[in-house]
Design a protein around this nucleic acid. Structure first.
Lengths: 120, 120
DNA sequence: CTACGGGTCTGGAGTGGCTCCACGTCAAGG
DNA sequence: CCTTGACGTGGAGCCACTCCAGACCCGTAG
């Protein structure tokens, strides 16, 4: 499959995929005889994973490390697992941020409503 | 109060506060006779709000609009409220992203565990 | 055969939102 | 009087994209 299809499936843009490849985040994208990229299902699965990791705040350096481990094969699985577990911690932190922000907003909106009530 | 204290209380860095002021996100920061910024409690409350909005993904353009409305006084309160309500929608979307990512991670980690089990 | 439209390539510039730094000023303390 | 430390400004640097120009290739229509 070619880049546009890989983009729609993974959620990343074609530009971002190329950028990720250049930055070493995507191991082993082959090229066809036409020099165009060909994406295997594993490639697309990998990109989809990157999509979610990035979207939830994993920095590129960490994704680079992750890709490096991936290239090293099955022996790196324990370390890959710890990396993902650390990301789960980040998810929890982000959820706490969202909750905190919800509270702040609820308070603000309530005071706005009160002011509106006072004015009318 | 001066910038470093405002920074620790609001959660923003002094650099970011100066940057926000320059970008028109913080109305009416006075200066003392020493030309240093003096932050009122309302200033700090405002900065804290900005901190949470930014941290949860409100773009600067929207915060600029918000600040503009704030400068227009109480008559802009309905529009400020809708702006915050729209941000609440964004919070829900982000929570959904985190949940989705959690699922992806859980699946990945489970397959890693399975592979580790198979190897040993 | 040629023209053209569409998808892809590369390299490079531009953007958003900070972050860091050099250099200068000023007030308080030793 | 001299140093120290918080603050000021202007500008460079950084991350993670995003957009664009210009070239290439393929298929289809005229």
């Amino acid at each position: 499959m070619r880049i546009s299809e890989a983009a729609t499936i993974s959620g990343l843009s074609a530009d971002t995929i190329r950028y990720y490849e250049k930055s070493g985040l995507v191991p082993a994208i082959r090229r066809g005889p036409d020099r165009l990229r060909r994406f295997s299902p594993e490639n697309v699965e990998w990109l989809t994973l990157l999509y979610w990791l990035r979207k939830t705040g994993m920095p590129m350096k960490e994704m680079q490390r992750f890709a490096e481990l991936y290239r090293q094969g099955a022996s790196s699985i324990p370390e890959r697992k710890t990396l993902l577990l650390r990301h789960e911690v980040r998810l929890r932190e982000r959820r706490a941020d969202l909750d905190q922000c919800s509270k702040v907003l609820a308070y603000k909106i309530a005071t706005y409503k009160k002011i509106e009530g006072d004015l009318s």
